[in-house]
């Protein structure tokens, strides 16, 4: 009986907190739908994804970022921050040693990094932006949890405006949408529906050649590529050794896009990260697809 009473009292207290009466904790819902209660505005943040790092710096919180992944190369200041491995191979010792009061992870609630860090008593906020549309929302969430809501609102609104502008111009252009083959390496890995980049191609006014691919990422058949003969080919990398590898492929030089000089290279980081530069990425691709409309 006494146990039951204690339980009920505890329940009431929890309910009280939820009502907003508790002064100590603010409650947030992260991108994975998890509840997170934070005492104060986080001062020591570890970012476990390049996009998260870009968002934090864009929000003017660079000085509070104490750890980033090895892939975080933008903005340049971020490269100087301590590296703690990456999302697949995080160095938990280093992360714990930095004494973060918030870790911004990419992934889902079940991701190993989330469960491990939770078990270590470190607050984890999951950011998940699988589509272009979700990026603004995730920036707002990060702004909220870091106490930078106003800046986040400005950035999200700016992204929304620029994306609307691209949509409007593509719509006004009318006509058939150019087909795009998006290539990641000389093995012809490409992106299909369900990937972030597929979404980006579509928004930029292109028709992804691999729209029939049943997987978000896969190796594309060279036969099918030659048969479908895309209008534009975009190689998403800055690795200059990439071009020769593609040109060596049998039949490559007979492709329409190659003959017409419509093979382009874009910064793979710019177009694949769900961060504050997403509108820039969409505009970059739109400019390649519609050179006469976007100058």
């Amino acid at each position: 009986m006494r146990k039951l009473v204690t339980f009920l009292v505890a329940l009431l207290m929890v309910a009280g907190c939820r009502g907003g009466a508790a002064p100590a904790g603010r409650s947030f819902t992260d991108g994975a739908g998890r509840q997170l209660i934070l005492g104060e505005i986080p001062r020591r943040i570890v970012s476990m994804a390049p996009a998260n790092t870009e968002i934090l710096f864009a929000l003017g919180l660079g000085s509070r970022v104490v750890g980033v992944t090895t892939w975080c190369n933008y903005p340049p200041e971020a490269a100087g921050t301590e590296k703690v491995g990456d999302a697949w191979a995080p160095n938990y010792e280093l992360i714990v040693g930095l004494e973060p009061d918030l870790v911004l992870a990419a992934g889902t609630a079940e991701s190993e990094i989330v469960t491990r860090l939770e078990a270590l008593g470190i607050p984890v906020f999951v950011v998940d932006a699988p589509t272009i549309e979700a990026v603004g929302q995730q920036i707002l969430l990060i702004g909220e949890v870091t106490g930078a809501s106003i800046e986040a609102g400005d950035i999200a609104a700016g992204i929304g405006r620029r994306l609307d502008d691209v949509r409007g111009r593509v719509m006004a252009a009318g006509g058939e949408r150019p087909s795009v083959f998006w290539v990641l390496d000389e093995f012809l890995w490409t992106v299909g529906p369900g990937s972030f980049v597929h979404d980006l191609i579509t928004l930029a006014g292109g028709r992804n050649l691999a729209e029939g691919l049943g997987l978000p990422y896969a190796q594309y058949s060279l036969e099918v590529l030659i048969e479908q003969d895309p209008d534009v080919i975009i190689a998403a990398t800055l690795d200059p050794s990439f071009g020769p590898g593609l040109a060596d492929l049998p039949g490559w030089n007979s492709l329409k896009a190659v003959r017409e000089g419509r093979v382009y290279r874009v910064d793979g980081d710019l177009v694949s990260r769900p961060g504050p530069r997403v509108a820039e990425g969409v505009e970059t691709v739109a400019r390649l697809l519609y050179p006469e409309i976007f100058r």
């Binding site: 029939g212 594309y220 058949s221 099918v224």
Partner: peptide, 9 residues
């Protein structure tokens, strides 16, 4: 080549 077109395995 043909199991999972247009993907290859």
């Amino acid at each position: 080549r043909i199991a999972l077109p247009p993907a290859e395995i």
